[in-house]
Every structure is written in C-alpha cells, then in structure tokens.
Design a protein around this nucleic acid. Structure first.
Lengths: 107, 107
DNA sequence: ATATTCAATGCATTCTCATGCATAAATACA
DNA sequence: TGTATTTATGCATGAGAATGCATTGAATAT
C-alpha cells in the first residue's frame, strides 16, 4: 500500500493550495517579488491574515522571503505550483464543459 | 485581478485532494474499477466514511460510477489527477532535499 | 413477502482552520 | 531614548469538515 506519510505530505500540499486567499497570494506573486505592504492593500483580508498565509506558504517551501528594513519581501520559490494551478484549471474547465453537455442532453 | 469564482473552484479541487483518505482512494482506483465492497476492507475507515468520500470525488467529476446489483463500482474519470499527484510528489521530494541540504549547512 | 447484502444518509461529536482584534516584535528615524 | 512604520503573534470566535454509530434505502434471492 501507499506510505501513509506520503499521503499526509501530499494532502498537506494540496490543502495549502485549497484556500482561495492563498491561491490569490500565489497569483499576485506571479508578477514578481512583493513586500507585505504591497500585498496587503491588494486584498480584503486583515494584515494578520495575510501574514499568516504567507508564512504558511513559505514554511511549505513555496515562497522565499527577505527582510529589508521594516519591510518583508516574498517571492515564489517553487514555480511548479503554477503548473498545478494550470492543471487544475484544465480539469475544472473540461469538467464544466462535460456537465453542460450532459445537462443539455446532447451527450 | 483573478476571478474570485475561479479561485473558489481551484481551491475546491485542491481541498478535495487535500485529504489523505481521498488520496488513498484515488491510488486504490488507479489499479482499475472497484466496488465499495472491495475498497472498504482495504481501508481502516468506516464504510460510511468511504462512501461519503467516494461521493464527493464523483460529484467533483474525478470518479465515475455504476451500479451492478447491490454493488456500486467506482473508477477514475479524470486521469489527470495523477499528474497532479506526481507533480506534488516532485515538489515535496525536492523540497525535502533542499531542506536537508540547508540543515547540513552545505547549501 | 421476507430476509440478506451492500451502499448511502441522519445525526451528534470532535477537530482543524480561517478570521479579526489587540498587542508585541523588529527596524528605522528623529 | 522615544516615536513611527511594518510585520508577526496571542487569543477568542466561528465555520466547515471528517468521523463513527445507527438507520434507512436499494437490489437481489429464497
């Protein structure tokens, strides 16, 4: 059988991506390095919330960070996450199409 | 900005994969179509739990199903999930290596 | 019709996680 | 040293999800 630890790790990574706010952060950082002071105004959530999500992402190795004065800059450390996002989009899109076809009866 | 609905859908798919029991189900079904009566004994969770997870996966379009007598058979409807699992594994593995290197100081 | 088998659902419980407010910590500047 | 700015943390709250038990529902066979 599959190693339970592997299942846990995989699930951990997917759970990390299973959160709209974190996904939005990843999309934001796709544009390049940004400090929290830039990220925060671009989102509706509290600053503390943003901070926590960023920390989670960096602890998972998806982000890298750097302190510059009082500011903290984050950037993408693992570009392959975007391939996962694209794959997810593909699956979601095709699924929607298939369901639309089924509903219309023209399957 | 990114469409919030898209974020929700993506997060929904990732959340679905962010659960060890569901991942295990996907790995099991990689071997081919199986009925719940085969799946259930292969796992430690209650039958009701298995049933619920399978239903979630099929409602998301990842599984297909068929009833044969009293038995219900499930199989993979979206093989691209395995691409996602492999990608996740790659990321996790490389991350572990990198962290090991950092800890050992030989970065 | 009854009994049997397999899968799904109702319900209560537990647990995790996200969130926001207030506060602390870190850094720079006057 | 004190003050201002930016980011992180402590804490309480609430929402959602997973789980197990008991029961119902669906299909078949006797």
């Amino acid at each position: 059988m599959i190693d339970p630890k592997r299942l846990e790790w995989e699930a951990g990574l997917f759970s990390l991506l299973g959160q709209p706010t974190r996904l939005k952060l990843l999309y934001l950082l796709r544009e390049g390095e940004k400090c929290v002071c830039e990220i925060h105004p671009a989102m509706k959530e509290d600053q503390s919330v943003i901070s926590r999500h960023l920390i989670k992402l960096r602890e998972a190795g998806l982000l890298e960070w750097r302190r510059e004065g009082v500011s903290v800059y984050y950037w993408i450390a693992e570009p392959r996450v975007y391939r996962m996002l694209e794959l997810a989009d593909d699956i979601i899109r095709d699924n929607a199409q298939r369901q639309a076809r089924e509903v219309s009866g023209a399957f």
